[in-house]
Design a protein around this nucleic acid. Structure first.
Lengths: 210, 210
DNA sequence: GACAAAAGCAAACATATGTGCTATATTTAG
DNA sequence: CTAAATATAGCACATATGTTTGCTTTTGTC
């Protein structure tokens, strides 16, 4: 089908794609016409009709504004629908869960298919205390903010205003925090310890090689 | 600033965010009004004005259609601009670099700020041969397709139609492939070995916890 | 050159969308 | 309770955008 397109029609199609990509919303007929330096909208409109007849362009219902889109690249089914910004936190600071934005290093867009749709932030790992879990210094941990976690999950917790990464095990009347580094001993905490607070659980890990 | 928002105003803001997220373009005033079951656009319009005064909402120039957007979440600066789809390959198969799409498990959107803008695919790690590099069975490796790589980089290579993950070192007249697992010996390959081919180098790692 | 398809311009028109009024209910703060 | 702020409806109007008509120019083909 697309092999029957004229050069001009390809250019228009490509312009629509780029506009949606860069701006984040579809163009109007006039905006397209201006992009090609045309003084009238009629010509562009005719091209758009042809592209629809040829089955490569579509639009939402009726004659709504900014409704043209390339078939197979519907806005919302693309990156915008799955990617979500996640703040990178250099350090977990007491005073959460306001997520101390002072420590914010920036955002990273993550695929919600991979990391889920719940509240997430990225925590940069410092030190080698998790080396037995194959977590390295400098890695980013995707942390889902939650207070409920199950046995064996890796959690981020505040212990007397100090943040730690540990495996979580709930025992009779206490909580056992198991370090992954075998040279370190587990920590036991009474369930009602006021200095203990769970920030969230680790859902993913990101590492970058240079 | 945002602490002075009324519940209704928060809801509207959240609706704008979700609309842009799901549809891929900003809503009209009437579409917003309908979302809240209102018969008039006047109320919604007033709320939008208030949100602008409070500095959380903005719009493109003039009075264009579908131009409202949340400040800090401008469409185009968001997911669509940085996220890029990367195919997940279950196994590196001989016959690359056509990237045997049969083995394709799907796509994952990755942030180009993190993974770069070059050709990338994701390779699922099988086995524990890279455990000393803290790479686990099931991890995803972000592989940049290239033939040029420097000493010490982790590469994906084809050796007699078999894919391996190794550290790359170029020596005088041969290439040394160093496994990360200390129980395994390095492999030496003449530079002109026809059965040897570099697929690409590892730029990142993704792990998911359950 | 004749011809048809594609592309362009100008001007109008129809619909979609943004904005501005008035009036009335509902909520909130004091 | 009262007053202010907020939210709603209904209507009118201005601008933005989509669509159509008629004509001219360009382009490629026979």
């Amino acid at each position: 089908m697309s092999d029957t397109l004229t050069p001009k029609q390809r250019q228009v199609l490509e312009a629509i794609r780029r506009f949606q990509q860069e701006k984040g919303y579809p163009p109007t007929v006039r905006e397209l016409a201006e992009l090609f330096g045309q003084l009238s909208t009629a010509g562009m409109h005719k091209i758009l009709m042809t592209l629809q007849e040829k089955g490569v362009l579509s639009r939402r219902e009726g004659t709504k504004s900014r409704s043209y889109h390339i078939i197979g690249e519907e806005p919302g089914e693309g990156p915008a629908g799955r990617a979500r910004p996640c703040p990178i936190i250099g350090e977990v600071v007491a005073g959460m869960p306001e997520l101390a934005l002072e420590e914010r290093e920036g955002d990273l867009y993550l695929d919600s298919d991979w990391v889920g749709k719940e509240d997430i932030f990225l925590l940069r790992v410092r030190g080698h205390s998790m080396i037995d879990a194959d977590i390295r210094d400098g890695d980013l941990l995707a942390v889902q903010i939650t207070q409920s976690c199950r046995n064996g999950e890796i959690i981020i917790a505040l212990l007397d205003d100090e943040a730690t990464v540990k495996r979580f095990y709930k025992e009779k009347d206490r909580v056992r925090l198991q370090p992954e580094n075998q040279t370190m001993q587990p920590i036991y905490i009474p369930i009602d310890d006021p200095g203990f607070r769970i920030i969230g659980k680790v859902k993913g890990l990101l590492r970058r090689y240079h």
